[in-house]
Design a protein around this nucleic acid. Structure first.
Lengths: 348, 348
DNA sequence: CTGAAAGCGCTAACAT
DNA sequence: ATGTTAGCGCTTTCAG
């Protein structure tokens, strides 16, 4: 009567052991890859577990193994569908590899300390950061507590932390090359005021290539934030400036959509007739027929896979050099840069 | 030398106790709300903890308290920015209340058993489902293992499970009322083939109200899925049908965007000139100037808050009746239903 | 108010 | 191959 009042409780390995007539260790071994259990006992255990509805408690396991397999995902700005996709891909990859993603949303001005607390309280096995949050603090704490950290599209911290990012240099270059190829002469940039490292790199590469190709850079029109509204604001600044421009390089798709909408709403400029536009990311909206935006694709799945590989490498050997991966960029040509007819013929 | 080789390890309550010259219990009590600790010892503990960089290990705590505060969020279809927002809001709410969201992405055809395994392995304190995954299995398992479950926008299971949803009936009604108010006569629906419960309710309410107001329902044009491509497909079916229509009710915004784009691309119909459109959700894209879509707002934050309230209620007293909440809907009037001039005057 | 001791569910030496 | 034992880090009676 003492042991049987465990009615309706979630079963433990003890319960299974008892029912199967073996020891707790036997049960444990049954669920440990590469342990030595006799097929017979293994069967008994599995049978007992099945009738009881037993599942290993990973938290208890984590406690004794010192490894929870919980991975913190620090994320901000999920409004941007690029971010949302990345989060989804990342979560999928993690789950597929036996990890569990703990979603930690941040906001730009938020207290990072709180975030760190949360991860450390739960003994996360690793951390992945893909937010606009300054990761310096996080990096420091993670290092102090021995938690592997992987940064996605955030190289600010320098070489000291594992990171994975798209090829930002190629992105800027591809855009400039394309503008050159379709015969543009006077180009501009649409960006956000407080540019991140990624954005600065894209811009720098774009500018360098423009110089090399003899394209004249006539302006950098900015919005406050890197989103739709930022694009609207950038377009307003562009239109007010009255500057004559052939082509605009937008630092990301979401901003580009706002830019396009505002230009079409407030001016008589047509795209690609009077103005060609290239952006970065290739979010779903970019391919919608209202936008049909030429863009430099950033593959969220590839990014997620690479991030996981980096994490595994850190886990495997923490003393090893921090891995750095760069995901190839690819130009996706769409309507916003449809070439003038005489050039289209040339390109056949 | 035996205890001091714990160099560079993450500190435990034992370490803190030793440094503070108290027992482990004292340390524990310091971090337990409403425990009785002398202010003096409390100070000593906090000081020691600070110098050591100690944080309570919530997993170990969870093990002894039988409560992890981990909450599983089962999510599918994050492409839809409504979902992405909801996930973000939900995660924020959870974190704010001391829970930690474990993100479990699913895909339509995926194995639910695997999902359940994952939650149960980690002894989640609760589960929130906002996916298109049939929750019947999940509901069953959660009930079997005593894990509180809250469904968002999924009432299929009936009254047996806690759920929170927007007012779908009002949504359909508001749309129909508005079409009536602006003088439409022949209305249609754009939807997806395999309609969920939510969608069916919206449609039913729309149809009922149309009947009541004497609006003629002339068709239900469908796409395969409830997304942009589904909207495109629905529009193609609509255009091919050649049926003359005043107004179209789209079952959600994302689908509406595809519908609008395709209609504008493939026909000479203008919106709202020849065709008025109302949808549901009020995602960010709906307000973009390319779309300017009238829609019935679904407030993700309110939904998230309500879901959390429901979860807390279940946690508080599992025997209590499962809470059901309905979030009010609101019609957001935009350009896609701009009324004819003579009616606009009437409405001043 | 405080410390000792038992226990949460599991794993990992160590014997056997 | 299997059972015994000693933890993993923390909370919580129970004495004092």
């Amino acid at each position: 009567m003492n042991k049987d009042d465990r009615t309706n409780r979630v079963p433990t390995s003890d319960d299974v052991a008892e029912l199967a007539g073996v020891s707790r260790s036997a049960v444990s071994r049954t669920y440990t890859a590469g342990a030595s259990v006799a097929p017979a006992t293994r069967e008994k255990v599995l049978a007992a577990a099945k009738t009881l509805g037993y599942r290993v408690n990973f938290l208890a396991r984590g406690l004794s193994q010192q490894r929870t397999n919980l991975v913190a995902m620090v994320v901000s700005d999920m409004e941007n569908s690029m971010r949302a996709r990345l989060v989804e891909c990342m979560a999928r990859e993690l789950v597929a590899q036996g990890f569990r993603p703990m979603l930690l949303p941040t906001q730009p001005g938020e207290d990072v300390g709180h975030l760190i607390d949360m991860m450390l309280h739960y003994n996360v096995t690793g951390t992945i950061v893909t937010s606009d949050t300054p990761p310096a603090e996080i990096a420091q704490e993670c290092a102090a507590y021995g938690v592997p950290l992987v940064l996605i599209n955030k190289a600010e911290v320098g070489g000291s932390v594992a990171n994975v990012s798209m090829d930002t240099v190629a992105a800027g270059r591809l855009a400039a090359e394309e503008f050159f190829a379709i015969g543009c002469k006077r180009v501009a940039i649409a960006s956000q005021r407080r540019a991140s490292h990624t954005i600065s790199q894209r811009k720098a590469a774009f500018i360098t290539t423009c110089r090399g190709r003899g394209l004249e850079l006539v302006g950098d029109f900015q919005g406050a934030v890197q989103n739709y509204e930022g694009g609207v604001e950038a377009a307003q600044n562009f239109l007010m400036s009255g500057i004559d421009v052939d082509a605009v390089f937008c630092v990301n798709d979401l901003l580009a959509l706002g830019f396009l909408d505002e230009v079409r709403l407030r001016s008589s400029l047509t795209i690609p007739g009077n103005l060609r536009v290239i952006a970065c990311d290739d979010i779903a909206e970019a391919s919608w027929s209202s936008y049909d935006l030429t863009t430099v694709r950033q593959d969220p799945q590839a990014l997620a896979k690479a991030a996981l590989t980096a994490l595994l490498s850190c886990l495997d050997d923490p003393t090893k050099a921090q891995p750095h991966a760069i995901i190839a960029s690819e130009l996706i040509r769409r309507g916003s840069t449809a070439a003038p007819l005489h050039l289209q013929e040339n390109r056949l």
